[in-house]
Amino acid sequence: MTTKSTASPTPAGPFAIEAEGLVKTFGGEVRALDGVSFGVERGTVLGLLGPNGAGKTTAVRVLTTTLAPDQGRARVNGFDVVGQAQQVRESIGLAGQYAAVDENLTGRENLRMIGQLLHLSRRDAGRVADELLERFALTEAADRPSKTYSGGMRRRLDIAAALVHRPPVLFLDEPTTGLDPNSRNAVWSLIEQLVAGGTTVLLTTQYLEEADRLADRIVVVDRGTVIAEGTASELKAELGETVLDLGFADPVTAERAAAVLAGHWPGPPTAEGTLVELNVTSGPSQVMLALRVLDEAGLAPGTMTLREPSLDDVFLNLTGHRTFADEELEEAR
């Protein structure tokens, strides 16, 4: 089975999504996008990774034609998002942040409505709705108003609604935010199946783990600009494989420990409160080194943990600030 779509892509170029220097300002002050450029190759997944207010949702809105950029250009499936908005809309599916389904309608009615709005015949709209309900494990709940659905079911219905016209390009804005681990896994495996079928996916996320599992390439955005780009392993290599956290009795001791360790480390350790954080590539041997250095200086840590780097670490490393500092910009609009 081929993934035929309603809008045939223009043959030129390997990119399903191209953004060039996108700028979007709100109220003349907040630069939600400040010159964002990236490309997504056909049949691949791009993870747009960043904290709240980084500009992820604004980027999705520009690429899905719901918001016009102030500057810059973008093409989706070969069509310009401003000049050829209609063709772009025929090429894309969008599942936004809020699980945008009509709560008063049943799952079946929601999907049928989307089919009819896409100008399928009543029969086809009904048939497509039934198929999607079955494939998204919603058949049993199909005739219940969607307000009775769990968060995971609603999210599945939302993604199903984005697939009615088999779009070659799918936008997922934080597809698993607020879901429990089981529902999150179900959504992840759905996305993987879609990608295996040839769909190009742009997904925004706040979770490194999610980008790591699903994305072929990751673009890290912060305050409207791209601050890093690469595969998950490239980003991690840049960051170090693991993070060593050393806890001390008080901030002054922590500062001293960080200073002592600095001379022995390729990347500078960061001290925050009573915690010293080190990016390490070979865990155990560097733990021993750290302890030896600290022992010689007469500083004994109270706690010690080795862990995977989090999005917060990526940010601290790339920008020098933590993600929560950006929450004041949340949903800038």
Binding site: T6, L118, H119, L120, R127, R135, L163, H165, R166
Partner: peptide
């Protein structure tokens, strides 16, 4: 995962 194709009227 995707539905069978349907042609818009």
């Amino acid at each position: 995962v995707l539905p069978e194709p349907a042609t818009p009227v």
